[in-house]
């Protein structure tokens, strides 16, 4: 079959032997002291540029934008149809909202934010539509295993991956108000990557309200603005209700505006449960003290960034932690990837 040939002909930096991930070169590495992608050897940069804009890629870009424009037309057609069928038109109006909120606006936001939102670290995660999402308000130091152990001991539950099955379960549990304490969290992006994992705590068995925090591993050698090296960045916010996003009109969780309360809650639970962990605070780290997240909810912060050091947390502690965290959060990266490729693949 020849469909693999395009990928084979393009041994990009991601497929090559370069140990530096692509995201590090393109999204993360902008502290000013690191050479950008352009500063590489000339011939290499040129071939990279040619590869970047191959015919297939240009077609992809064209289809991406064309589909967005066509979707606007579809929304308009469905909208005009809603006046043709009397009371049945209400169903068409619902269809119009679905098309607008879940197809048209995300695609338009995606196209526009690609151009107007800077693609380097600005202390904010981005939603899957490219909008500015939750602010990065926590940093961690330590291995992935230590981090999992520390969170599990602190009474946090690892969130499921988003699949059709788990998405359906979060809808039904929200409607029936049944508990779902491993409910998946929506993907947010940092360094061009979705969060590596997320932890949460359900409140009063109500899936509409929960503490949750997303984690991203920073690229190798990447420094925070100011020069501090951390291994993990995290964004913690409190979901207080379910409502409409003002940017996409989608149904989403609304977050509590006072994000410092949630940040301090996460730090406090980790420190209380892990005597070996300690915290260093970078004062006034944030560049924005008042803002909005991806759903349009206002956020305010004092701007501090706590760096929680969990390197000393014993990894063995994870077995002694809460039982619900043990199964899904095997602290080995390779094993986790294998599980999602094989075992978990079946239930989606």
């Amino acid at each position: 079959m020849s469909d693999g040939s395009v990928a084979e002909r393009e041994p990009g930096p991601e497929a090559g032997a370069e140990p530096v991930p692509d995201a590090a070169a393109e999204a993360g590495a902008e502290p000013g002291v690191e050479p950008g992608p352009e500063a590489n050897a000339g011939s290499e940069a040129e071939s990279a540029r040619a590869r970047r804009f191959s015919v297939a890629s240009m077609l992809d870009g064209f289809f991406f934008v064309f589909a967005g424009v066509a979707a606007v037309w579809l929304a308009w057609l469905v909208f005009t149809q809603s006046f043709e069928f009397g009371w049945f038109g209400i169903a068409f109006f619902l269809g119009f909202w679905l098309v607008l909120a879940y197809l048209v606006l995300p695609r338009l936001h995606r196209i526009l934010t690609t151009i107007y939102v800077p693609d380097y670290f600005i202390g904010r995660a981005r939603t899957s539509d490219g909008l500015l999402g939750d602010p990065v308000n926590l940093a961690f130091e330590g291995s992935e295993a230590s981090l999992h152990a520390a969170m599990a001991l602190a009474g946090w539950t690892r969130a499921d991956d988003v699949t059709l099955a788990t998405s359906w379960r979060i809808v039904t549990s929200t409607i029936t108000r049944r508990s779902y304490d491993e409910a998946p969290v929506s993907p947010l992006f940092l360094f061009g990557r979705q969060q590596d994992f997320a932890y949460q705590q359900e409140v009063e068995g109500n899936p509409a309200r929960r503490h949750h925090v997303r984690f991203w591993r920073t690229p190798d050698g990447w420094l925070l603005p100011g020069g501090r090296r951390v291994e993990w960045l995290a964004a913690g916010t409190f979901d207080r209700a379910v409502g409409f996003s003002i940017f996409t009109l989608q149904i989403t969780h609304k977050i509590d505006a006072d994000i410092d309360v949630e940040r301090d809650h996460i730090v406090a639970t980790v420190l209380t449960a892990n005597p070996n962990a300690y915290v260093e605070v970078l004062r006034d780290f944030s560049t924005g003290y008042h803002s909005r997240n991806g759903g349009g909810d206002t956020i305010r912060t004092d701007g501090d960034l706590p760096v929680v050091v969990v390197s000393e947390v014993p990894i063995g502690a994870i077995e002694a932690g809460p039982a619900d965290a043990a199964g899904d959060s095997v602290p080995v990266r390779g094993a986790d990837a294998a599980a999602s490729a094989t075992g978990r693949g079946a239930d989606g």
């Binding site: 804009f53 890629s57 870009g61 151009i115 294998a338 989606g348």
Partner: peptide, 17 residues
């Protein structure tokens, strides 16, 4: 950012469902 980044190839992970 350059609008051309809309046409930039995405970098998929090696194992992807």
């Amino acid at each position: 950012e350059s609008p051309a980044s809309l046409a930039r190839p995405v970098t998929p992970p090696t194992s992807m469902r």
